[in-house]
Design a protein around this nucleic acid. Structure first.
Lengths: 244, 244
DNA sequence: CGCTGTTAACTTGTCTGACAACCTGACGAA
DNA sequence: TTCGTCAGGTTGTCAGACAAGTTAACAGCG
């Protein structure tokens, strides 16, 4: 049975305009503080209506690239686009190198989070983690989809740090790597033992956190993330070795 | 001479509408996958024109909260708002606790980055760091503003990791804490030795990185960030202790 | 009864035009 | 030289029209 995926939609004019202007800003063509061309000029330049230009500028405002003053114009922010943390600019394709770089950042934060969780976790935190573990165990038994429970487990660890920013970051990372958990938990993943491996690694993290042992938790999280990276075909040799 | 700050501008209607809808999404009133009211209904409900509603929805699209299909409507994303990492929702005020939580996340990433920089840095990387150090030194000598050079130094360390994601994160964090460097580098900061302290700490980080010593770099970065937190009035006792 | 095709009504995407509110720079008066 | 005025321009909002796409109801057919 061939996979049927949703039809791709033509991108909206306002999105295209917004992407182009973002590119100008990111490649330095439009420096911080500089005034954008007027809406009328952009409308002519792009060959679209003024409404489309305005919607594009609304997008850029939401992303922190520009701000506008009525009657004066729209201006590039002093530090454009730094209101939030994104993993790529618009023009950058998601390559294997980029994915590995993102994973390394995830590795840094999640190993530290596991250690912090070991020191700060409450009984309630452990219960939430245990629940996700149990759900994954059930999925393992029936060869079902444990992807969401896998995500929930990581978020529960981050929650146990007691730092909402770390939890928020874990959610963000969870979203980036949601699809990459699928090969662990699909039919093939079950058959080849990947789901069982992941679960064993999760159990080791949980045990270390429950024991209140930050170093063991850090090591268990490290092992899990290194193995997860290998399962995705990444090299981890250049990740930290000595800091332990 | 009293401080004159820029007049605050009334927020745009489209921003208000966008913020309200974002609130609906974030507080769960509108669940993932749910269809937003039609543009016409929102226009009536908010008492604004359809163009304002469309601009608001453009903002929400840019932020990853909704997606739309022509003829069908706009829908809340499966995992709304997780296209990027933000430090707060719209309604959340920046409190001291939140700032400390953000700082801890910064601490985790920047200490790890320093260790990685020690292992991976090139001569060019060191030259960039050295340049920022020299600039800060000059600012110290003339009691000038070293805020930008301070930021540049941290970004240079992140760049030396060779991981563009880590650098991007450092830029993002630099933006969040830009204003908090001001008390270090203003007149008072110079007079009370804060600028000198920061520079000494920067020098120690640089020396460890130049020496290619990841553990020393990690420790120096840790010391700097702990001291910086203290300079901002934060407690760091609950940060990691054993993970060295 | 189930399936397929058609179509009316509705919804989003884009364009156009108008006007309000604000900005900027030139020019004249004191 | 400084201040006030104003014309021309720019952004913010509103309204209306039409194109492109969606949805659901209904009719026809096997």
């Amino acid at each position: 049975m061939p996979t049927i995926s949703p039809l791709s939609r033509p991108s909206q004019l306002s999105e295209s305009v917004s992407n182009t202007i973002e590119q100008w800003i990111c490649d330095g063509s439009m420096a911080p503080g500089v005034k954008l061309p007027t809406e009328k000029a952009l409308s002519t330049q792009f060959g679209v209506s003024r409404a489309v230009v305005r919607e594009a500028i609304s997008r850029l405002k939401a992303e922190g690239y520009v701000h506008s003053r009525q009657g004066a114009g729209a201006f590039v922010m002093a530090r454009p686009g730094l209101e939030s943390f994104r993993l790529a600019g618009r023009g950058e394709a998601a390559s294997d190198d980029v994915t590995a770089d993102i994973f390394e950042l995830r590795y840094i934060v999640e190993t530290a989070a596991a250690a912090l969780a070991a020191r700060r976790r409450t009984r309630d935190d452990l219960a939430v983690m245990r629940e996700a573990l149990v759900t994954m165990g059930a999925r393992l038994a029936c060869r079902g989809d444990g992807t969401q429970a896998d995500d929930d487990f990581h978020i529960a660890i981050a929650a146990a740090t007691g730092n909402p920013m770390i939890q928020r970051f874990a959610r963000f990372m969870g979203n980036q790597f949601y699809a990459s958990r699928v090969p662990t938990w699909n039919e093939e993943g079950h058959a080849e033992g990947r789901a069982q491996d992941a679960q064993d690694e999760h159990q080791a993290i949980f045990d270390a956190i429950a024991a209140g042992d930050p170093m063991a938790a850090h090591a268990a999280a490290r092992n899990h993330l290194v193995q997860a990276a290998h399962r995705l075909g990444m090299k981890t040799d250049h990740w930290d070795k000595e800091i332990r």
